[in-house]
């Protein structure tokens, strides 16, 4: 992919403009995180070097300023990932309530290890740190949606659903807030 082929949709470009306007003049770099989120959602779920260079050009900053930021934050993927990333929280409160078993279950079911993607490019399994859902442990996040009070059955149902929908999930997806 060369840089010329990479361009946000008109809709996203309007959002970029609106985002930059939230910050004082000359401080457009502040918009970097939200725009990287937008880019990751629009360009196949990860940030390639050409995509990062494109974001740098939009914000009128150096590419290195984008690389150093993208590599710092754990929500940004710097390599291709599956359509759906199953991000299982494995921090204490979830661990106390069986997070390791959930990780093992997904790993066995999809036949991938943590950090790997299924051969069909559908799922990536990832472990993540506390997502602020400790009271509903164990839990995982897929796209922007939290899946809480997990059991093996719930996980199986979720994986079936995602496979049937066959859509890329992103952090920017709209979410129906369950009864909290």
């Amino acid at each position: 992919m060369s840089t010329e082929e990479i361009k946000f949709s008109e809709e996203s470009l309007a959002l970029v403009k609106k985002t930059i306007a939230k910050y004082p003049e000359g401080r457009q770099k502040s918009a970097l995180l939200p725009i990287l989120h937008l880019a990751q959602a629009e360009f196949d779920g990860w940030l390639s070097v050409p995509v990062m260079d494109y974001v740098a050009s939009l914000l009128d900053i150096q590419p290195i300023e984008v690389y150093e930021v993208a590599s710092f934050y754990s929500m940004f993927n710097l390599k291709p990932v599956g359509k759906c990333i199953l991000e299982v929280c494995h921090t204490s409160s979830c661990w106390l309530r069986g997070a390791d078993d959930i990780v093992d279950h997904i790993s066995n079911k999809l036949n991938i290890k943590v950090g790997e993607t299924t051969a069909d490019g559908m799922f990536t399994l990832k472990t993540v740190e506390c997502l602020g859902s400790c009271g509903s442990a164990p839990m995982l996040m897929c796209g922007s949606q939290y899946h809480e009070h997990l059991t093996f059955e719930k996980v199986d149902g979720l994986i079936d659903n995602l496979r049937n929908e066959n859509k890329r999930t992103t952090y920017l997806d709209e979410v129906k807030v369950e009864n909290y």
Binding site: W46, A70, S71, F72, Y73, S74, M75, F76, N77, L78, K79, V81, I85, H90, D100, V103, V114, G115, T117, T124, K126, T127, V128, E129
Partner: peptide
């Protein structure tokens, strides 16, 4: 093996 899950998370990329 059981408790060594984090290594993929050191880098933000899913490796």
């Amino acid at each position: 093996t059981r408790y060594y899950y984090h290594c993929n998370n050191i880098n933000p990329e899913v490796a």
